[in-house]
Design a protein around this nucleic acid. Structure first.
Length: 743
DNA sequence: TTGTTTATTCTTTTT
DNA sequence: GAATAAACAA
């Protein structure tokens, strides 16, 4: 055993429990740390890195640490720096994608790529696959591009190149698919582009193909650490194995109960069979939860207990419960949103910071109802994730211009902006140009800029000339090392992009201009903070940004995000909403037991985000796909013993209110499994002092006389009634002051 | 070729 | 209900 007695004082300065401490100090070989939710995983990982540098004497750049988000990476980096008081700029910490991009920028020339290759996001991938399929004459009807992309992604995640698949296709369909895969990869190559999967797989291919390169990195990385190991896929596993196979200095942390990314190729087996791949693995189990109260943990444990194949563990806590878990039934999604918002404002009044509360949902589409109702109540909120800033049309247009300056082979970007803003280069001209480019063996962009294209129509010819002129100006600026924000603003004025939006002058166009301004600001700030780095670095950074990366925990804003996005976070108060069959578990996963289990784990992940208060809810009906759908409570809720939560039924509060969809509701009542529902409605203490009203009801007012209720909005103390009185006047009244008497 | 309208699919989840 | 594709007029 190595003697670390002299190190005790350093490690003691970090608060660790016994298991955490021994996991940090162990230095005899491969380590697998099972870290349940809220057990201080990040702390262990950070302490481990600090220990390796400070006590084992590794240099920061000897360490390869893969985290799940860039945000986690930069936080860990600064925590390590705090612990050891040494700058850790050399530390290789980041997502697998960022780390691989870094390797590939340096070494992808061995694979025939330039150092400035472009990273294609999902939109770009889709455009490219559609183009490839069109060239092959495949109908989108027979093969859905998205589906094709998913299959290709699966191949890549398993590190199976198309070369291995050629001539193995059993059916016509399969053979065509493999051809698409081949064409797609070759198109990526021609465009000097890689998609997200390529970043990992190409790194693996590089290491497999080129032993010298692999050896160089093996020598550099004395230690490999992986966070969220349960969410790694096969290619990531190969990568880790290639780096650590010889020295076995590997440390992985994860929790099989929180594996929620199998649809992205993640293999839960990676963590469950780790000790057979790395013999002599020492397993550590972190089971003390520091986050949640007993009630929340009991609830979560009950949720996860329905899963068959899991590593044995039992979370415990010493935190006594302050409140019970509540499950609320609502009539529809709007009432749910309103109920949650109402609770939130109650908590705010009690002095709980909005920033310590979160609303978690299964799909991004669910956020809208909450946004509306929070805005109405003047409660600040942030949506974490969702439609990324960098995915907006106008932003992507700008980025496409910049990308072309860095990578003239990037055909997808070129096609995107060749006619944006419109300059008379229509689809027909573009098709002609594509053909010419193919014949001459140059990229579309090079063809146009060098003006080597043959005759085209007069209008198109003028447009192309304009495009070429614009770019010769921009390229010149770029070569003269003009700051990127200046290049961009030059492009915006010379193309007339801004003028067009200015002229439009609608709410939408103004929002777009604002986004463009924000992009200019972001570029300026980045340029100031990253002296010496190139435009290519900026473009990479934003392509690989994770949803959570841009999120700064604001004190005054309630957080809205998907369950996936919430992984690794914690909040004092959590609202888990939309707990209905079809949503969670998602309808698409009904058929597959493995996927159903994953949905269950997702529910578990959501529940364990809560520190003090957990409120779950579901609705009887919900607006989906533009129409109202009847919903059933999630089967996962029904699997939890009823004594572990308090059931509150608010669905009967008003017989009819916002939407009069009586027919659907009648139908729905028949379908209801009455016995399986927790008994009779238990009315929340919420509404005791308000009177029940319904639409169409005839009421009397002390001053205005008799009238009929036309509409009801809000509820509880905020309920407002629109009443048509017999004298023909229409009044909007606060229910609690109006004192209306039923007639 | 461009800008309108209409039809259709779509929602899981993300690097 | 929104975003995209197809269909159509100018």
């Amino acid at each position: 055993m190595t003697d670390f007695s002299k190190t005790i004082s350093f490690i003691d300065s970090i608060i660790l429990n016994d298991v955490q401490r021994s996991a940090v100090l162990y230095n005899e070989g491969p380590q697998l740390v099972f870290a349940g939710a809220g057990t201080g995983k990040t702390r262990v990982l950070t302490a481990k890195i600090a220990f390796l540098i400070k006590e084992i004497g590794l240099f920061p750049n000897n360490i390869f640490a893969a985290t799940f988000t860039n945000k986690a990476a930069s936080e860990m980096r600064s925590r390590v720096e705090e612990m050891i008081g040494i700058s850790c700029t050399g530390l290789w910490i980041g997502t697998f994608h960022s780390l691989c991009a870094r390797i590939l920028r340096r070494d992808a020339h061995h694979l025939g790529f330039t150092a400035t290759f472009t990273i294609y996001d999902q939109q770009d991938q889709l455009s490219l696959i559609k183009k490839v399929m069109k060239e092959m004459g495949l109908e989108e009807r027979t093969m859905q591009p998205k589906q094709v992309l998913r299959i290709i992604s699966n191949y890549k995640n398993a590190c199976i190149p198309w070369e291995e698949l050629e001539d193995t296709g059993k059916s016509y369909y399969e053979r065509e698919l493999i051809q698409v895969y081949k064409q797609y990869q070759q198109a990526l190559g021609h465009a000097q582009a890689m998609d997200f999967d390529d970043l990992i797989t190409n790194t693996v291919y590089l290491f497999r193909k080129n032993v010298q390169v692999l050896e160089r990195y093996r020598k550099q990385f004395h230690y490999v650490l992986v966070d969220e190991y349960q969410d790694t896929n096969k290619s990531q596993f190969y990568l880790v194995q290639l780096l650590a196979r010889n020295h076995h200095r590997i440390f992985v942390v994860g929790d099989d109960d929180q594996s929620i990314y199998s649809w992205r190729g993640a293999q839960i087996e990676n963590i469950l069979t780790f000790d057979t791949v790395f013999p002599g693995t020492k397993v550590f189990k972190l089971e003390q939860n520091y986050r949640s109260t007993q009630a929340i943990l009991d609830f979560a444990n009950a949720v996860i207990s329905n899963i068959s194949n899991r590593a044995a563990k039992r979370l415990w806590t010493s935190r006594r419960s302050t409140s019970e878990v509540v499950v609320t039934r609502y009539r529809d999604d709007r009432q749910e949103a309103d109920g949650v918002a109402e609770k939130i404002s109650e908590y705010i009044t009690k002095g709980i910071t909005p920033g310590s509360m979160a609303i978690l949902f299964r799909t991004n589409a669910q956020s809208r109802a909450f946004e509306d109702v929070l805005r109405k109540r003047n409660i600040q909120y942030v949506i974490v994730g969702g439609i990324s800033f960098y995915e907006r049309k106008e932003v992507k247009d700008c980025l496409a211009y910049l990308r072309l300056l860095v990578n003239p082979d990037d055909t997808i970007s070129c096609e995107r902006i060749l006619n944006v803003p419109a300059r008379g280069i229509g689809t027909k001209t573009q098709e002609k140009l594509a053909l010419m480019a193919l014949e001459k063996g140059v990229s579309l962009f090079k063809l146009v800029v060098s003006r080597e294209y043959d005759a085209v129509g007069a209008r198109a010819s003028k447009g192309l000339e304009e495009f070429a002129t614009i770019f010769s100006l921009l390229l010149e600026l770029s070569e003269n090392k003009t700051p990127p924000q200046d290049i961009l603003s030059e492009m915006l004025s010379v193309t007339g992009y801004v003028d067009l939006l200015d002229a439009e002058d609608t709410g939408e166009s103004r929002a777009r201009l604002e986004n463009i301004n924000e992009l200019l600001n972001a570029l300026t700030i980045w340029h100031e903070e990253n002296e010496g780095r190139t435009l290519s670095d900026f473009l990479e950074e934003i392509s690989l940004a994770t949803d959570i990366d841009g999120w700064k925990h604001e004190k005054d804003a309630v957080n809205l995000m998907t369950l996936h996005c919430a992984k690794g976070l914690e909040f004092e108060v959590v609202f888990l909403v939309g707990l209905e069959d079809g949503l969670i578990p998602s309808r698409q996963n009904f058929e597959d037991d493995c996927m159903l289990e994953e949905e269950c784990r997702l529910f578990y992940v959501g529940s364990t985000r809560a520190m003090n208060t957990l409120t779950c809810s579901y609705a009887d009906t919900r607006m989906r796909f533009g129409s109202i759908m009847p919903m059933e409570p999630s089967r996962f809720i029904e699997q939890v013993p009823p004594q572990l939560f308090r059931f509150v039924d608010r669905s009967m509060l008003f017989s009819q209110t916002v939407r009069p969809y009586t027919e659907r509701r009648k139908k729905r009542v028949v379908v209801t499994k009455k016995q399986e529902r927790p008994a009779r409605p238990v009315y929340d203490d919420f509404n005791q002092d308000t009177v029940q009203y319904r639409m169409g009801q005839v009421v009397a007012h002390s001053k205005y006389g008799q009238g009929k209720i036309l509409a009801i909005s809000g509820f509880g103390p905020d309920m407002r009634l629109t009443v048509l009185f017999n004298d023909g006047s229409r009044k909007r009244l606060m229910a609690k002051f109006a004192n209306l008497q039923p007639v």
